[in-house]
């Protein structure tokens, strides 16, 4: 008996991500969750600009490719017109927390009934390793080659904490992909968020810490360790809002 095989909610296309990049894991978690909830046929996904720009090739449902940072606005347009569909947005940190911060904050403030999957790998991956709004203090990037210096580059943005200052969001959680236990927890959070949306509860947001072995200049296994040991210090895991459990 097969106890693990690829979900039908992912297409047969081979993922283009670098070896060991855990983007692929998150794709699988989102796809499996949608399939398990039986929402495949009413799902519309929004792909970002960044490493996940080809996400429209991978998710086996209707997809729109948005301009850089604009995915929450695109999702707003769809969800408001088709409120019974499942609308999910997949964005990286440059897309969501830098160029698209206005769209991010306002979709959350309006309480759009969408699900945002936020991939935080603390770097601009697709363009070759530039500093991101989430780059850790001291972390090297091609545009801060001696490491991020707060005096020059400021501090990383904690998006979950920032969105949790708003009244409207229904569910906000930060999870990680650095080991089996955390991947399973990430799956639970993503599925919960999608379920909340399907129930029409409100805005749901899951930040997922992901590794970037290529631009962190680490072996994939070392990148997982760095994520678990370092990234989680700046970006602590946990539930920041869950109105279903009265967590405001």
């Amino acid at each position: 008996m097969k106890v693990f095989q690829k979900t039908k909610m992912l297409t047969d296309a081979h993922l283009h991500y670098c070896p060991g990049c855990t983007h692929g894991i998150v794709h699988r978690l989102v796809a499996e969750s949608i399939e398990e909830l039986g929402l495949q046929e009413k799902s519309i996904g929004i792909a970002p600009v960044g490493c996940a720009v080809f996400a429209y090739d991978y998710f086996n449902c209707d997809m729109q490719e948005a301009a850089h940072g604009r995915a929450p606005a695109v999702a707003t347009g769809i969800k408001r017109c088709l409120p019974d569909r499942l609308v999910f947005v997949y964005q990286g940190d440059g897309d969501l927390a830098s160029i698209g911060m206005a769209e991010t904050v306002h979709a959350a403030a309006r309480g759009e009934k969408i699900t945002i999957i936020f991939i935080n790998n603390s770097i601009y991956g697709m363009t070759g390793g530039q500093m991101a709004p989430t780059t850790l203090i001291g972390q090297k990037a091609t545009t801060c080659q001696n490491g991020r210096d707060p005096a020059v580059n400021g501090y990383p943005i904690r998006v979950c904490e920032l969105l949790a200052t708003l009244d409207a969001p229904y569910y906000i959680e930060r999870v990680s992909t650095h080991d089996v236990k955390h991947v399973l927890a990430a799956k639970k959070a993503i599925k919960k968020a999608l379920q909340f949306q399907a129930e029409g509860r409100g805005y749901t947001f899951v930040e997922v810490l992901v590794s970037c072995p290529t631009n962190w200049h680490m072996r994939p296994v070392d990148a997982l360790r760095f994520m678990g040991e370092e990234c989680t210090k700046t970006f602590p895991l946990g539930v920041f809002r869950d109105k279903s459990e009265g967590k405001q």
Binding site: F4, K6, L10, H14, T22, H23, G24, I25, V183, L184
Partner: peptide
């Protein structure tokens, strides 16, 4: 669970 490419069937 850890394979980023869904390359393993168990």
């Amino acid at each position: 669970i850890m394979c980023p490419d869904c390359a393993i069937v168990v």
